[in-house]
Amino acid sequence: MNITQFTVSELKDPTGILTGNRYEFHLFLEFDEEDELLEEDAAGIRTIYVVDGEEDKITGTYFFKKGTEQALDFELEDEEIQEVLAFCRENAEKVEETTNNQ
C-alpha cells in the first residue's frame, strides 16, 4: 500500500461527552495493477484516528470510491491496519503541533 497524499481534519465533540482527540483522515492510495481495488475504482481509505491519553486507535475504516466517496465492501488486512495507524499517529502529531503554535 502506497499512500500518495492525504487530508486530515480535527473533529470536535460539541457535547463534550467523548474524551480524547479525534481526527478524520482521507488517505489516497496508489494500487498495484493486479489489485482488485484498482478495478473497483478505489481512491483510498477513510478513517477516524482517536487519541485518548497514552492510547490511540483507528476506527470506522473503509475504502472509498473515486469521485463519490462511496464506501467499498473491502476490509484492511492486519498489516495494513498497523500501517494506517502508524501513518495517522505521525501525521496527527503534526496537526496538533500546528494547532498549538497558533
Results as ranks from 00 to 15, higher is better:
residue 35 D to M: 02
residue 18 L to S: 08
residue 61 T to H: 05
residue 100 N to T: 09
residue 82 Q to G: 09
residue 78 D to H: 05
residue 70 Q to L: 15
residue 28 F to A: 12
residue 8 V to G: 04
residue 33 E to H: 12
residue 16 G to H: 02
residue 56 D to H: 11
residue 14 P to D: 07
residue 7 T to K: 04
residue 82 Q to C: 08
residue 9 S to M: 13
residue 62 Y to V: 14
residue 29 L to G: 05
residue 98 T to F: 14
residue 40 E to M: 08
residue 94 K to F: 10
residue 63 F to L: 09
residue 14 P to L: 10
residue 89 R to M: 00
residue 69 E to D: 14
residue 89 R to G: 00
residue 32 D to K: 11
residue 96 E to C: 07
residue 7 T to G: 05
residue 93 E to P: 04
residue 45 I to S: 01
residue 48 I to M: 10
residue 41 D to G: 07
residue 13 D to I: 08
residue 1 M to Q: 06
residue 59 T to I: 15
residue 5 Q to Y: 13
residue 31 F to A: 04
residue 11 L to E: 02
residue 100 N to V: 07
residue 53 G to P: 02
residue 13 D to Q: 03
residue 84 V to W: 01
residue 32 D to C: 10
residue 17 I to A: 11
residue 84 V to R: 01
residue 25 F to M: 01
residue 7 T to V: 05
residue 72 L to E: 02
residue 99 T to L: 15
residue 72 L to T: 02
residue 6 F to T: 01
residue 11 L to N: 01
residue 56 D to S: 08
residue 45 I to K: 00
residue 66 K to L: 03
residue 90 E to A: 00
residue 86 A to R: 11
residue 34 E to K: 13
residue 97 E to N: 06
residue 13 D to Y: 01
residue 34 E to Y: 12
residue 41 D to E: 12
residue 89 R to E: 05
residue 28 F to T: 09
residue 78 D to G: 03
residue 79 E to P: 03
residue 59 T to F: 12
residue 41 D to C: 05
residue 48 I to P: 06
residue 51 V to E: 14
residue 4 T to C: 10
residue 65 K to T: 12
residue 55 E to K: 12
residue 45 I to T: 01
residue 66 K to F: 04
residue 96 E to T: 11
residue 54 E to V: 14
residue 96 E to W: 10
residue 28 F to C: 13
residue 75 E to M: 04
residue 74 F to G: 06
residue 17 I to D: 08
residue 4 T to I: 14
residue 27 L to R: 02
residue 49 Y to V: 00
